[in-house]
Design a protein around this nucleic acid. Sequence first.
DNA 1: ACCTGTGAATAAGTTCACAGCA
DNA 2: TGCTGTGAACTTATTCACAGGT
Lengths: 207, 207
Amino acid sequence: MRYSRIPDETIRRLPIYLRGLILASEQGQKNISSNDLAEYVGIYPWQIRKDFSYFGDFGTRGVGYNVGKLEREIKRILKINISQKAALVGVGNLGMAILAFPGFGIYGLDIAAAFDINPKKIGRNVKGVTIENISKLGTIKRRKIKLAVMAVPRKAAQETADELVKAGVRGILNFSPCYLLVPNTVKVITIDIAMDMASLPYYMPAS
Amino acid sequence: MRYSRIPDETIRRLPIYLRGLILASEQGQKNISSNDLAEYVGIYPWQIRKDFSYFGDFGTRGVGYNVGKLEREIKRILKINISQKAALVGVGNLGMAILAFPGFGIYGLDIAAAFDINPKKIGRNVKGVTIENISKLGTIKRRKIKLAVMAVPRKAAQETADELVKAGVRGILNFSPCYLLVPNTVKVITIDIAMDMASLPYYMPAS
DNA sequence: ACCTGTGAATAAGTTCACAGCA
DNA sequence: TGCTGTGAACTTATTCACAGGT
């Protein structure tokens, strides 16, 4: 199976497996079967095995997968084995929560810069990152920052994205509730925390 | 096409269309073609038409869709035409950002209660919501709250989910970075803001 | 006996191409 | 002419069932 195209859905699930493996690792597990991992992540064991089979033989028949090895393999596939610097744009309520969030490290992300337009915030130090004036956004180019997290108001979103593209960013995690137009040299993932909740009532079993 | 099963992917896209329609509406558009809407949401026009066709004939040939009507239809399908009360559990950095976030209203969600374990926070009023002691979580049952937003530390997540289930909640938007085990009478959507970023490097075109 | 890896079968979702109505 | 609605073709993804190591 190793030479065929990798399904997007498989790539989408890899970070979920990674999260499960880290959990298992914390519990002291050295080896894990697809059945065990399934319980950690809520995905069927045959789906897990199929997903891994696209990349190689990661497991041992009769035994399962080595937790540490599998973790490294997934990080390598996702290209997050080497930590990458990211810039945060917009340090409002949500931006502040993102800065304070401890979980980015395990996915190889290092929020190394933060920008805001509000003069009162500029110069403040949050979690070791000094908030800079958004007019300095262009500096990320020479600082080799290729990733950005956007947490700006919707009306500023497209403009901010344009600036980021100009500054050479290659990937954007967008928390503004809108679709962003960018050249196809840039990958955008949008998370609209309110919108994601909108489908809950549809799936809620009728009372 | 009206009588077949609705694809999950179609349901997932409906909130995106809704967001686009609200944008178009703000711009003063009364009618919109699938081509126009496609530009607002980044989804192909034929996909848009196909999605709507599962539910009925929402448009007019030669003209397009009436923005207001389509908005109402989508809200009705998603069962968010009548506003629903939701409880927020965990008012840390992220919880605070969620409380302050203005966007829930358009998806028919009203954060009507907030709970935290920290005595210093209890009693504080944020955006018109008074933070209550988490020990009072059970009260949401008689307050007819069927939806919850969880923004608690990972180690408390499963336990909190269990409490919510016991309190009669039917839908949970989970921001803790873990999979939650709940009975199938409850629908969970998990957003792991760090994890979602993990697939960016994979898709980033090589420099 | 146990658990992975995978071809084959099935299911789900997308895209096309155009009929049909305004 | 313009744009929707949709069957049919095509593509992608999931599930099964079991061969093949340990």
